[in-house]
Design a binder for these strands. Sequence first.
DNA 1: CGGGACATTGAGTGGCATCAAGGCGTGTGG
DNA 2: CCACACGCCTTGATGCCACTCAATGTCCCG
Lengths: 253, 253
Amino acid sequence: METGATILDLNQLRRSCGLCALNELCLPAGIGRPDLERLDTIVHHKRTLDRGKALFRQGDTFHALFVVRSGSLKTFVENPAGDVQVLGFHLPGEIVGIDALANDHHLCDAEALERTSICELPYAQLQQVVREVPSLHGQLMRVVSREMVAEQRHLAMMGNQQAQERLAIFLQSLADRYGRLSRDPSTLNLPMSRYDIANYLGLVVETVSRLFSRMEAAGILAVNRKTVRILRPDLLTALCDSSGRSLRSREAG
Amino acid sequence: METGATILDLNQLRRSCGLCALNELCLPAGIGRPDLERLDTIVHHKRTLDRGKALFRQGDTFHALFVVRSGSLKTFVENPAGDVQVLGFHLPGEIVGIDALANDHHLCDAEALERTSICELPYAQLQQVVREVPSLHGQLMRVVSREMVAEQRHLAMMGNQQAQERLAIFLQSLADRYGRLSRDPSTLNLPMSRYDIANYLGLVVETVSRLFSRMEAAGILAVNRKTVRILRPDLLTALCDSSGRSLRSREAG
DNA sequence: CGGGACATTGAGTGGCATCAAGGCGTGTGG
DNA sequence: CCACACGCCTTGATGCCACTCAATGTCCCG
């Protein structure tokens, strides 16, 4: 009995937000010690998803927000005609499920791209904690806002950039996020398929494939299936805003 | 003195959220009477913007959220290279400024498309009210979530649809929002320029112009400068998902 | 070792951007 | 009040980038 309790406590401890390496990237960022412990009481750390498994589906009733703990997710919408749009790829520390707050139903699907573990924040309980810990409200709004900004960047890319710039921006952004996770930002492991990448960028898979080849030929990347090494970060950055292209209503007036 | 006070009270009353026609579309939706009065104490109803004037600019320090009371706004981002992306058009009852919560600075510009009046919600005070009125937290999250969903739809359109479908979807969505505002959804007044529309849709202005002409020739619309009448809503709806087109990585695998 | 999904590469085409010119409305100054 | 000028919008001709179709290559898993 006693031993059992100890093990449980250890697990509890190891899995607490306070000890999580993602702490500063995640919802708890900037939350004080006692408040953190209160938040910890409601977080479920259990869920693990195999590659291809859904965390939730469009239409599911909303009951919790989720944070990626390890692994990665993609979120996407599918309209009645069957068109898919990948909305984003989610790395550790990033939150998903916010779109469901508006009407208590998820409006997109979330699927694991690899074996992925998830922290679950039951929303009813989260709201209760928000009442007790006011600073959590501000933090939650900040996290939501961060998601919106990411979507806006995605949108700006789709509206203005050529195919090659899109892929460059995508890789750059992934490298940045790798850096924040203290991974090597020059060696990217792409857990998603070429189809996913293409769809996310508003392109077809053949175009993405050709661009990888072209960038490899240019000495910018070393591409090996799902592993991409960035050999010339400077050239990659240059591609992100290479302005020798169309003006697609730059001056909206 | 007494008269002055009375007039002031009347103005106060007329301008209160409780009496505002937008009540049910806006932040206060679903908030009870006493809580509403508390919210009212912090809302500034004063600002009016002339066409082309900025509500805020990219980089401005964040201090308040805003709700359109009458008129309309556009929000857009501009990158260092000068590329503009229109993120959205905002009709009465819709909130802007959420993107700034993440880092205390606005990340997009907001400009009036016509003479527009604005309710201002100073954020520091709003947070205080949220502490006193817990249901406001949920409502605020719902409003934010609604904005995210709109962005996701925008994204899905940019990623999957052809030019003609984009314009059809745009007009349809505008008509829907007109309906919710109890305006005639078959007679649209487009306060934004063709450039703005084109940019929002990820097209060039010539393409938009041609599409208007084509839809008019097809008897779907009657286009007269900024006024567009929808003659055949059924055909417009059909255009929104006319599936006789490419598959742009429909099946993201 | 074989099958199937995923990825790459090539040839051809089409939709939308680009370039260019002209019409329309609006606002401004004489 | 009219005339001019400017910006906005429309229409036409041309070209290019990315999509489409097709075939082959590669990896993974049974």
